[in-house]
Deep mutational scan, measured.
Amino acid sequence: MQRVNMIMAESPGLITICLLGYLLSAECTVFLDHENANKILNRPKRYNSGKLEEFVQGNLERECMEEKCSFEEAREVFENTERTTEFWKQYVDGDQCESNPCLNGGSCKDDINSYECWCPFGFEGKNCELDVTCNIKNGRCEQFCKNSADNKVVCSCTEGYRLAENQKSCEPAVPFPCGRVSVSQTSKLTRAETVFPDVDYVNSTEAETILDNITQSTQSFNDFTRVVGGEDAKPGQFPWQVVLNGKVDAFCGGSIVNEKWIVTAAHCVETGVKITVVAGEHNIEETEHTEQKRNVIRIIPHHNYNAAINKYNHDIALLELDEPLVLNSYVTPICIADKEYTNIFLKFGSGYVSGWGRVFHKGRSALVLQYLRVPLVDRATCLRSTKFTIYNNMFCAGFHEGGRDSCQGDSGGPHVTEVEGTSFLTGIISWGEECAMKGKYGIYTKVSRYVNWIKEKTKLT
């Protein structure tokens, strides 16, 4: 034993070699072989497995989906700052455009905790909710729209109204504003409101030439003092309507412009014939205590009207009353817009006519005020429907199939267009061939041609 100890002390290297040989010859039971080890760690190889990531292109799944990435790591994937920024906006807080917040056709661009709407022409605001041009839906104005110097929408209202708090709607500024039905039992019968379409306001006024200088022999019209197929109006439903009495009662109609003036057809009036105007009328054979009678003290036909040349060209006249009318729910003026808007309103496509005229061709006159909704007829169809001249200051309205029309005794009465609950004068009943005849239409004086003249002559002093 002493000898062994001496050998170990003198030859430590020998001992180490012996131990190493023993270990190498022993069977290893701690580690699995290569094949079995792979069965336990069965993990798919990654895209760049075996390579240094710093030297390969980034992978979106590896960089940002398996674990949260930084902007720089995302930049490695896209290799483009702009594309990385677009991805980053949604990656950080989701897609803010998912709810489609942009209105009126706006395009949404996502941002971090926010979004941006790219608005089409005519709109602005956070969600493109603000109209900035009158060309689109009248700028959301209830009545009139004008573009300011910086191309912003400025709404306005006709006389007797003021802008509401929203700067879009119009509200009454006087007790009985024009064009409004205020009798409670008839307010439910107000005709369907007309909503502004998209309009090209630059070209809204037709490029028409008034044929002022045409000389033409007097034409022989049949029954051209021209509501057939209409309905009984309720008291106060058309408070701007008046009836004219002269040699015979209810020979023509008219509309209240203001307390002192009536507008009617020029062919209705004769110099030297006494005319009485009755406002607030409903049943011409009954006294309903809503009527107001006034005498006409002055007749002003349009300066281009000449019955000797043509009885229905420039067929418009103004009547001055001896005493002002007292405005109330049964006696209310009709609204008159400017030339541009009167023309736009007419193009809405349908209007209402009213009167006490004959209820059928050569038949009896109506006792109760009649009204009828009539569609506008395109000019080409209008011209083809008659052998008589249709001037540019006239328009056609009615039904091709016949059966409904204005008729004798309705002449001078109103053709009105309702705009968001307020009625505007767009025409004056003038003439036609018979009444409600198939293929024939009622012919009306186009008020847009005469609004400046009306307003100039009827100013209240």
Rank of each mutant, 00 (worst) to 15 (best):
V377Y: 03
A366V: 07
Y312N: 07
E340I: 11
F399V: 13
T287Q: 14
G94D: 13
A207W: 11
G357F: 08
L327C: 04
R226H: 13
L41I: 06
V416M: 10
C157D: 01
I300N: 03
T290I: 07
A207L: 11
Y47N: 05
E171D: 10
I454L: 08
Y441F: 09
T332I: 09
Q370H: 11
D405H: 14
D150W: 07
G58V: 02
P101D: 04
T158F: 04
V269E: 02
P177L: 00
A37N: 02
E285L: 13
K362R: 15
L244C: 02
E124H: 11
V331G: 00
C18Q: 05
K234L: 10
F144W: 03
R226E: 15
G106C: 03
H289D: 09
G412Q: 05
D110F: 08
S182N: 10
D95I: 09
C155K: 01
F348D: 08
F395H: 01
Y22M: 14
W261Y: 08
L369I: 06
R404G: 15
E98A: 10
K339L: 06
K126E: 14
I344D: 11
C335R: 01
T287W: 14
R3S: 12
E129W: 03
G236R: 06
E61H: 04
G409T: 07
D315I: 00
V447H: 00
R180H: 09
I336P: 00
H314N: 13
V269L: 12
C335Y: 00
D110W: 10
T85G: 09
F78R: 02
E27F: 04
Y201V: 11
I429V: 11
V416F: 13
K387C: 04
S204D: 13
M8A: 13
W453P: 00
E86V: 10
G160A: 03
N283R: 11
H303E: 09
E401W: 13
L189A: 11
K152F: 10
G160Y: 03
V419P: 00
D322L: 02
Q185M: 10
G229C: 10
S354T: 15
P239R: 00
F395G: 02
Y305N: 03
L52G: 11
E193M: 15
S156M: 12
S70D: 07
C117M: 01
V77R: 02
I7H: 15
E116C: 07
E193L: 11
Q219R: 07
S148D: 09
A380T: 12
V183K: 09
C335H: 01
L20Y: 07
V30H: 14
G105I: 03
A397P: 00
C435R: 04
V248P: 10
L23R: 02
P44T: 15
G229R: 13
C407D: 03
C407Q: 04
C28K: 04
I316Y: 00
N36E: 13
G398I: 04
N147A: 13
L32D: 13
N59P: 00
P239A: 04
N36Q: 12
N100P: 04
Y115E: 04
A366I: 08
A366Y: 09
E285M: 09
Q143A: 02
N343E: 15
T186L: 06
Y115N: 04
I390P: 10
L130Y: 13
V359A: 15
N80L: 04
K347I: 04
A265M: 02
E72P: 05
S49T: 10
P12F: 15
N5F: 13
G230S: 10
E171T: 09
L32T: 10
N203K: 08
G363P: 11
N310Q: 07
T85R: 15
D93W: 07
E456N: 13
V419W: 10
D223A: 11
G402S: 15
K260S: 02
K440C: 12
R75A: 11
W431Y: 13
N138T: 06
A337R: 01
F31L: 14
G13K: 13
K247E: 10
T276M: 08
L14G: 05
